[in-house]
Each structure stands twice: as structure tokens, then as C-alpha cells.
Amino acid sequence: MAQVEPDRVLTEALAEIEATSDLTSLEAIRVRLLGRKGEVTAHLRAVSSLPKDERPAAGQAWNRVRGGLEGALEAREAALGSPGADTPSDDDFDFSLPGRRPPEGLPHVLMQTLDRLVEIFRSLGFSVADGPEVETTHYNFTALNIPEDHPTRDDHDSFFLAPDLLLRTQMSPVQIRTMEAQEPPVRVISPGRVYRRDHFDASHSPFFFQMEGLYVDTDVTLGDLKGTLREFVRRFFGKELGMRFRGSYFPFTEPSLELDISCTVCEGQGCAVCKQTGWVEILGCGMVHPNVLRGVGYDPEVVSGYAFGMGPDRITMLRHRIPDIRHLYENDLRFLSQFRGAS
């Protein structure tokens, strides 16, 4: 009973307050309930005479009533317009005025793609590895099974700092460094900036990003590579997409493959983005070449592994239909702010 009564008092009083149309009757209600001899005040005083174990609950209940009434009286008073105060009516409140936005961080659109790639592969059990952008020819070529006289080694395609020092042309050197530093199993991704000796144009840049992945363990097969990449495509694009593995050639993997996905723009029907083929190439991959494993001291008779590499620049351009790679490195705010919240 003691718990019910305060609520009833509050409910009735609130209805009464809402119904008042002038400040005088509102003041009368205040005095009747909250004045020195008011009803609620009396209940609050009476709490101290209750049995000890009932006091806290009763005290809380009546305090809640008082708080509620005070708030309601104040609000009603404001609504009725206290004498002399210039209170705007609700009708004058203009919610359509702009809000005061706090400064908001804006991740670069390319990093949004990279962050997403990293997040997906982390959730698939990969760690992140990194290495220097200035690499030795050993890590960039030799350890990757690229023979001494291979054309990709010459200074036509890569930026050199010294005869055996260059700007890495791929993220694969990080795979070598990682394998050298630990025993199998190894499961890493390595995102980072790479360099090719190209002039800037709509689809080329002397620097761009790459993300490679590597998994070496006992019993890793081409089937695992295919299954993992399918899961990646599912997570990245948020749905099942047509996938096509094609034969290819990279010196550091064998078999070497390329993965096409069905064009997300035209859904495989053929459009300018996929050059009417319905397919878009998104990554290269393969089984790690035994020479590469041997080179880092792994036994290719015992372990096997897969590797893959993709271009976040290209994927970003595909996702957002950005026609020119130069936008990515120019940092025009009008460009960057288009992708707020894209992730």
C-alpha cells in the first residue's frame, strides 16, 4: 500500500498540472502538494516515524514524487509563460537549423579499403607483418626465385638507390622476412606501399599499395587457397560472387593462378568496367614455390603453403568507380570527403 500511494499521488497531480491553464492555479497546486504544509511534504516528514526497515523505500518513493512534481511544475510554468520572462513558444523552435558538428575524422578512402581487408584476414586467423620499403635485391628478387638475368630485375622497371638496393616492387619480401624469422606455421598478411618505375597516368602510379597473404603449414593445399579466397570474397563483397581461377605465371608460386570475380557493376553482363568480359581480375595467387621455401630454410617435403597478392588501389577504384588513380594521391578534400563512412 505504501508503495502504491506515492505513484497514485504523482499520476493524479501530473494530470492536474497538465490541465492548468493559468499560473495562479498552478501555484495553488504547488502549495497544496509541496508547500511547507503540503501533502507530499507531510508524507516525507512521516517517513522518519515509520519502522526502520520501511524507511528507505518510502523515502525514495516520496522523493521521486517530489522530483517529478517539481519538474512538471517548472515545465508547465515555462509553457504558460512566467510573468516578465520572454519564453519562446514551441512553434518558434527551428529544428531545421544546422547542428554544431564536432570535428570528425576522415579516413582516406584507400585506407578504408585496406582496413577492411586487414580486418577480414585477421578474422580468418592471419597476423599482420611488415618490412622496409627500401629493400635489397636479395629479398625483392633472389629469395623469390627470380633468376639473375630475369628482365623484371633490370632498372627499367624498378627504382634503385644502389646496385643491390631498391624500392620494393611487391610485398613478397615481407613474406621472406617473416618466414626467416619464425618456424612454420606462418599465417600473415602484409599490406604496404610498393613502387614501379611508371609515369603517372589514369591507371598507373610510380607508387601504390599491395596486400599479400601467406599461409605455410603441413598439409596446405591449393584447395585451401581456393576456399579461403572464396570466404574472403564473400566477406568483402558481402555476397556470393561468381569466381574464376585462371592459370598464370609468377616466379615465386607454382601453380600460379589469377582470380577473377564476376563484375559487380554489370553482374557479369559486360560493361566498360569489365571491358565487356563480365569478369574483373582481383588478385594473383598460387602455391609457394619450393625454391622459395628452401631459401628460407623450410623443407618443401614437409610443409607447403599458399600466397596471394592484391592491389588495394585497384580494388578501391573498382568499389567506388574512381576513374583515375591520381585522385588517390592528390588528397583533394572534395574527393576525400565523398567517401566519409564508406568503410
Binding site: L222, R246, L257
Partner: peptide
Amino acid sequence: YDRIPERMRGHTSRHVAE
């Protein structure tokens, strides 16, 4: 390549300090 069955081996790896 399309006829090679897919599989996804192992979801966890030993911790590697980054």
C-alpha cells in the same frame, strides 16, 4: 583449376608477435 575442390584449413594459428 575450377575443378579442384575447395577447403579451408585451420582457423587459428599460433600467436605471432607483430
